[in-house]
Design a protein around this nucleic acid. Structure first.
Lengths: 95, 95
DNA sequence: CAGTATCCAATTCGATACTG
DNA sequence: CAGTATCGAATTGGATACTG
């Protein structure tokens, strides 16, 4: 349970998840453009953390130039109802 | 929505919320005993943050010695379903 | 394109001591 | 009892420059 929150903690993870929900897959540069204020360092760091937690999947196409896609895993998709519950709470409490 | 997660972020907040769910109200010293590894500094800091976010209520009884109780607010109680959803996800994904 | 590497500033955390 | 104050260590974050 602590790990469940940890999996979503971090300034950018929700934003990343949001953009993946809106449209999948996303390339690294797409996420960069979608979240202008994130640095490359933070973006890759959060993506790796989400990957390590089994929430997003990183798919590498061995091409030149490099091509990497990020998708939600099944567990990532399964997280959506919980995020919606949090969202509903936030709306209801006007927080 | 970011604030919704922020309201629950922090190593001790879930633990505090848990103990308040199990039994209300709780005094400061009860929470200290319930969560042995938290320092006073962190405990009060997280309690204040939860209070600022409208999730817990701090009730002071003007007695000697001092007597302070912590309770969930209505918004705090309303948060429970969302926490359960997160919990279910954590269990289902074996995270 | 998709990252690494580095350096530095800011924030967070624990331990300890003290107080109304 | 219920905190506050202080300090230093550890972690995190941003900016910038560089690379396979």
């Amino acid at each position: 349970m602590e790990r469940a929150v940890a999996a979503v903690e971090g300034r950018w993870k929700l934003l990343i998840l949001h953009h993946l929900l809106v449209r999948e897959p996303r390339r690294f540069s797409e996420l960069e453009r979608a979240i202008p204020r994130v640095t490359q360092k933070m973006l890759i760091q959060q993506l790796r953390a989400l990957e390590a937690d089994g929430i997003v999947q990183r798919i590498v196409y061995p091409e030149v130039p490099p091509h990497v896609e990020y998708r939600l895993t099944e567990a990532g998709t399964a997280l959506v109802p919980a995020l919606n519950a949090l969202h509903d709470w936030a709306v209801d409490t006007e927080l």
